[in-house]
Amino acid sequence: MQNNGNSKATDRAQTEPTVVRWLLISVALVFIALFLMLPLAAVFIQAFDKGLSVYLDALKEPDTLSSIKLTLITAAVTVPLNLFFGVTAAWAIAKFTFPGKNLLITFIDLPFSVSPVISGLIYVLIFGLQGWIGPWLQDHDIKIVFAVPGIILATIFVTFPFVVRELIPLMEAQGKEEEEAALVLGATGLQTFFRVTLPNIKWGIIYGVILCNARAMGEFGAVSVVSGHIRGMTNTVPLHVEILYNEYNYTAAFAVASLLAFLALITLAIKTIAEWKVRQQLENN
C-alpha cells in the first residue's frame, strides 16, 4: 500500500513532489475541517453556549426524557430483529448457492436506495386511515401509523440491510470448510453455528449492529412521516430536536442534538475498531 521507494528515481515515479504533496494534504484537510469538523464542533459549542446547568436542564425536561425513552425502545426492538434477520439471511446467501441469489441481494439492498420519506409513506399507505387495512385497524381500535408501532416499522425498514450487508462478504470470504469439519466430527448444526461460525463473524456482527443502531436512533425522515408528532408520546430524539429548533429554543435543541452527536462519535470509534479486526481476520484466513 505504502510506497517507500528504495531510490530517488522510484520515488519520483511513484509519488508527487513534496510541495505538491503538502498542497494536496492541505486542501484535503481544509475541506474536511470545514465540512466535517466544524459542524461537529458547532453542535457541542452551541449546546454548552449558556452553561452546563442550562444544558442539563434541557436534558431533564420531561418531553426530552420521554423522547429518549421512545428512541431506546425503538432501537431495542429494531436492532435484534435486523440482527436475527441479518445472520439468517447471510447464512443462506453466503454458504449456499441457489438461483436468484443476486436478485435477492438486490432486494435486500433496496431500503438503502429509497428516500427516507418514501420509507415512511409506504406504511401510511398500508396502515393509514386511507390505507389498505387502515379501516379494519380502526374498527378494532389498533393504532399503527402515527403511533409507536409505525415508528418501529419504518425504522426496521431503513436499517434493514446493515447487518446482512456486512456479513455476506465476510462469510463468503471465510468459506465453509471449518463448518464442514465440525459437522463431520459430529457437531450438530446449532453447535457448529455457535461454536465455529459465530466466533468467526463476531466483529462483522458488531460492525453491522453498531451502524444499524446509529441509524435506528438517528433516523428522521421516515420516522417523521409515520410519527404524528405527538409531544411526549410519539416523538423520538431527532423529532424532538426538530420541535425545539422550530420553537427557536436553540440551546435546548443543540443540547439534545449533542446526545446524538456523542452517539455518532462512539459509533465511529467502535466501527473503526471493528473494521480493523475484520480486516485482520480476513488476512489471517
Partner: peptide
C-alpha cells in the same frame, strides 16, 4: 491521518436532523 480517515464516515453516523440544524446555524 487515522482520525481524518474515521471522520470521513461522520455523515453516515451523525443523524440527519443534527446535521441539518448545525449547517443551518453555521
Amino acid at each position: 491521518r487515522k482520525i481524518v480517515d474515521a471522520l470521513v464516515d461522520l455523515p453516515f453516523a451523525l443523524p440527519t436532523a443534527v446535521a441539518g440544524i448545525t449547517l443551518a446555524t453555521i
